[in-house]
């Protein structure tokens, strides 16, 4: 914007003040609009990654409606995300940056009152033609992989070694014998537990099941 102003000032000798003023106004408007666009647009793939992270890492402690109702400038968002990481939100530096970029672009002070929920964002950004459980045939879970996937995604609520915490104990839980109920719960959520169908692949869920069944 400074460049535009200086440019107009240099030209002023040859243009009438009225024209110069008009150009200045238009220039500012154009630059501002471009900046706003930059600030508020986010690529679908980026959005997809961010909402997936929000769904998986923030909803451990609170539902995502708390996030969607905020309208904050970037510095307040940054402080908030840092505070949550300090309190245990499981985000790498790179993940935190992606999340921050998204919330800053979506939930800024000028944003409209009613915005889609994180769950709606997930549905809107879902990649077309993803795997469906019906067409995949039976999946074979790998227990060794399941341990780590569990630790990263489930342990915060279900406890170390699946021994329970805010969520129920899963080691030797009878739901493991009822695969239908297990998949239904993981894919679609149940009570306070969020749906994981958009976060974990079916193979990962099968891996978690295999590991839990081995406990």
């Amino acid at each position: 914007m400074r460049g535009v102003t200086e440019g107009v000032r240099r030209e002023r000798g040859r243009w009438s003040p009225l024209v110069a003023g008009l150009v200045l106004l238009l220039g500012i408007a154009a630059v501002t609009a471009a900046q706003e666009d930059d600030k508020h647009t986010i690529e679908p793939a980026q959005a997809r990654r961010a909402v997936t992270l929000i769904h998986a890492r923030c909803a451990v402690c609170h539902t995502t409606d708390l996030i969607v109702q905020q309208r904050l400038p970037p510095d307040r968002w940054q402080v908030t995300v840092e505070k949550m990481m300090h309190w245990g939100a499981d985000l790498s530096k790179d993940e935190a940056d992606a999340l921050l970029q998204f919330v800053t672009a979506r939930y800024h002070p000028g944003a409209t009152d009613h915005l889609p929920s994180i769950e709606e964002e997930l549905a809107m950004t879902a990649p077309a033609g993803g795997p469906s459980p019906a067409s995949d045939g039976p999946l074979v879970g790998v227990s060794a992989r399941g341990a780590e996937i569990f630790a990263r995604n489930c342990q915060a609520c279900h406890g170390e070694g699946a021994m329970g915490g805010a969520g129920p104990k899963l080691a030797r839980n009878k739901i493991l014998k009822n695969e239908g109920a297990f998949w239904e719960t993981v894919l679609h959520g149940r009570g306070p537990m969020p749906a994981w169908g958009s976060v974990l692949s079916h193979q990962e869920i099968a891996d978690i099941h295999a590991w839990l069944a081995s406990r």
């Binding site: 402690c61 309190w87 245990g88 915060a156 915490g165």
Partner: peptide, 8 residues
């Protein structure tokens, strides 16, 4: 109690 022990 909070969901995570790291939350005050």
């Amino acid at each position: 109690r909070p969901a995570l022990p790291t939350v005050p």
